[in-house]
Design a protein around this nucleic acid. Structure first.
Lengths: 241, 241
DNA sequence: AAGTGGTCTAGACCACACT
DNA sequence: GTGTGGTCTAGACCACTTA
């Protein structure tokens, strides 16, 4: 029934998720792992891998000795903070159809704090890209990315700044963005941020202060983003470990 | 070498993590899965389960075809937002030795918003417990928990309010807290919050607005917490899914 | 007692990275 | 080519829930 790529467990996961969203399971009860394995023609291990993914993202829960069930509260979650990747995708997951504008793109020398975060020398040149994401002319996210100039390569067209930063890093820097270490920072909108987000100066905002790492686990990106709280709320599941 | 409980993979995980923290692996390179399996006398599947846990928490990373390595940036993370459980533990993970004070404990009827979150009728009585966590006399976290009165049982001493809320729910309500669905909310400190956190009125704060669920995935707890940003920063890993 | 999820095994083949 | 992690299988036993 399934092909080899993507992995069988990934295909099984999508298949089961679709059946959940179609409300195909009575009383939210999902068939037993053995039944699913037999139905889909794969091993129980593969099914368990699929169910594990659905459990982590909050779609289902399992009870030993009892069964596997749809987690209705978990279905409300549109985007999990730990998983969000590009802001375009984040906004689309919220039902928006975002537009992107590059506000600024220039080079400047790194200050001491930035140099520490990127593990470069203070004064080394850094490329700065400021972008604004809008939904229907309403600003939602203001983000500023900083990439050490040493990574920049010539073969990169002018429009690359518009693309998601992980694509920019791949195209223009031959660097793959693997993960962010992020800090959530509360602050009050200064004049510039307020103007750009069309949000009252002095009002409370959330900022995400992040460092992005490549496949060598070296810092290649520093990023600061501001979010309009009325249009975008961060949600997450907290569970006992 | 290992006993049967806790699970072999859990024991293997702790064993490997200890060796990592003792810096026993040269250049951060962890032995191959086959070697680990042979050394510990378990199957490769069990080792892979252990390594998966270490990978999720950011302790290690794996590269197909190459090997498994210690993730040095990941070792900086003291507490991950997705995993934090009681605020006592959270503060201890940050190196504090917190004290807890119960500020208020009373019952009141639920307003419409709270009733919706807890899936009860508006006007139904709810127990309110406000607590303040301090480090060295400095307020760090202000939290207010609300539990439907219908869950309360008689056999519960007066000091129970001081204990972590999941313990309170187990002791006084025979309810097990399984997970929270949380929203991160930016706001400016009002007079009461500012006074209690000894933080300038009007300054930016992060609040966590949460609903806790029991093993039946029914809401049993509504919680709102305020954090002194200078003493406690939220961190997380964001990765591609 | 029967059925469920939780753990574990031994073995296989694949994709990928090194050299 | 060799060794690594990634995926998958078939089967076993355990712990737990439900009837």
């Amino acid at each position: 029934m399934f092909k080899r790529h993507p992995s069988l467990s990934e295909q099984a996961k999508l298949h089961i998720k679709e059946r959940i969203l179609n409300n195909e399971f009575e009383e939210g009860r999902i068939p037993s792992e053995n039944d699913l394995a037999q139905d889909l023609g794969v091993s129980r291990t593969t099914i368990r891998e699929a169910l594990r993914g659905l459990e982590v993202e909050g779609t289902i829960y399992r009870r030993q000795g009892s069964g596997t069930f749809v987690n209705k509260p978990g279905l409300q979650i549109k985007s999990r903070l730990e998983e969000m990747w590009s802001y375009e995708e984040l906004l689309r997951a919220h039902g928006y159809t975002p537009s992107v504008e590059v506000l600024e793109i220039f080079e400047e020398p790194a200050g001491p704090q930035l140099a520490g975060q990127l593990q470069i020398d203070a004064g080394e040149m850094v490329l700065v890209i400021a972008k604004l994401f809008r939904e229907d002319d309403e600003p939602v996210i203001l983000t500023t990315n900083r990439v050490p100039g040493r990574y920049l390569q010539g073969d990169c067209d002018a429009a690359a700044g518009r693309r998601p930063v992980y694509e920019f890093l791949e195209t223009c820097c031959q660097q793959q963005l693997l993960y962010y270490l992020s800090e959530i920072v509360p602050l009050r909108a200064d004049e510039e941020v307020a103007r750009r987000l069309q949000w009252p100066p002095g009002s409370a905002l959330i900022a995400l202060d992040e460092v992005g790492y490549n496949t060598e686990h070296e810092p290649i990106l520093q990023s600061r983003s501001y979010f309009r709280d009325d249009l975008l709320r961060f949600r997450l599941i907290r569970r006992r470990i």
